[in-house]
Computed example of a mutant assay.
Amino acid sequence: METVAAVVVTYNRLNDLKKCLDTLRQQTRKLDAFIVINNGSTDGTTEWLATQPDLQVTNQANLGGAGGFATGIDTAHKAGFTWLWCMDDDCLAAPDALEKLLASPNLGPCIKNSMSVSVKDHDELAFFVSRPNKEYRKVADMAPVDLVYGVASFFNGTLIHSEVVKAIGIPDKNLFIWGDEVEYMTRAQKLGFPVVTVPSSVFYHPPSFDRDGIPWPAAWKQYYAVRNQRRVLQNQHGKTIGRVLFATWAAKATMQQALAKRANRLYNFLLYGEAALDSLTNNFRKRPDTILTLKLYKWRHKTV
């Protein structure tokens, strides 16, 4: 019999976490386990989790989404579950989301993702997707088909077969956030595992907030998206070609930030340049408090 464990990573969003877990507990296909990774929350999450007997909780330092899912996937895989259903704490699952994933066409060991719908507008996808011959913006763009191949919004209702984890390992915690999920997806694709979105299975998620640029100081998160892109490109094109493609892309993207008519473009330019240099020199050690551009911004604006 196939078993399914939910893997939820949380950090300082107790109210969101409660709502997320409520939707998981109400699934028409009951889950076999709830594994929650608490990334060093300081808002009462730790204390509340201790009162929930149906949850298997790991409390750890804040290792970012990458470190949280590395721990959660490793825990669930070692426990022997057939499927691992992974999500952030601000996701809301439709009542039949898991049932629909499991009932979708059998692809063998694979990764199946729920369709991520904007919690603010149920006609719009939470994350826009661009493909050479197709743009996915609205729910109607995906809804007509059973499976959308090569598209998945990790980690938002991402169902991963245990055989996939056995082959590709766990997420790289050194990537911290932003890009770690794409790196993990391309790792699976590189070994030939199908990656699909199942439109009949619905997850609700806040819409991507970086569509029009991220305001400072929150823009520091973009550092990781830039830095981690090299790993994605190397998964897709090999180490040498991937490195060259990254260097070319990063140089162009950094100059675009310098020329863009946006507030804080100097900081955006410095941030992209710092991230690109760190990536090319294989410096994946930086955490938010050691990103030089962020430290400069805080010093000049007297923020803490």
Rank of each mutant, 00 (worst) to 15 (best):
V151R: 12
M1G: 13
A253Q: 09
L294D: 05
P207F: 01
N12A: 10
S200W: 00
T75V: 04
V8C: 08
V9W: 06
K100G: 02
N228T: 00
P288E: 04
D90P: 09
S162M: 03
I37R: 06
A253P: 01
L233A: 10
M255K: 11
N113I: 02
Y149R: 12
E163V: 01
Q189V: 04
Y272M: 11
W299E: 10
V304D: 09
F81W: 08
E183D: 13
Q222N: 13
K134M: 06
G68F: 08
I160E: 07
I111K: 12
Q60H: 02
K112V: 02
M142A: 14
R131E: 07
K173D: 07
G65N: 05
G65T: 11
A263Q: 14
L296C: 01
T290V: 08
N106M: 01
R25E: 10
N59A: 09
I241D: 15
A258F: 14
W216A: 12
G80Y: 05
V196W: 08
Y184E: 05
T71F: 00
H161D: 04
T51P: 01
A188P: 10
T3Y: 03
D32C: 07
R265M: 09
V36C: 08
A6N: 05
G72W: 02
V7G: 02
T71E: 09
V164L: 09
L245K: 15
N235A: 05
P171Q: 01
F209E: 12
D172K: 04
L245G: 04
I241E: 15
A5N: 07
W299H: 13
A275G: 08
I160Y: 05
P95I: 05
D278I: 00
A6P: 03
R287F: 06
N174S: 14
Y184L: 01
S208R: 08
A225F: 11
D96K: 10
L92H: 11
L266G: 00
L92V: 12
Y136S: 00
T248W: 12
F128Q: 01
E181S: 14
G179A: 05
P171L: 01
M255W: 08
Q236F: 00
L266H: 14
D74N: 15
L84D: 03
P217N: 07
V36K: 11
L159Y: 03
L270T: 05
V196N: 14
G108I: 06
R300C: 07
K239C: 00
K100I: 00
N106E: 12
F69N: 00
F269Q: 13
D22S: 13
T240Q: 14
S201K: 05
S200V: 01
T82R: 15
R243D: 06
A93C: 13
F209I: 00
V139Q: 02
Y204I: 03
Q222G: 10
R243L: 04
S114D: 03
V165C: 03
K302T: 04
E99L: 14
S41G: 07
R300S: 03
A250C: 07
A263N: 14
K302S: 07
A79V: 03
L24H: 10
I177Y: 12
L49R: 12
R265Y: 06
Q222W: 15
M87P: 00
H205C: 03
N264V: 01
V151S: 11
K302Q: 09
W216Q: 03
A218L: 06
A50D: 09
V36L: 14
Q189T: 08
D16Y: 13
V9A: 15
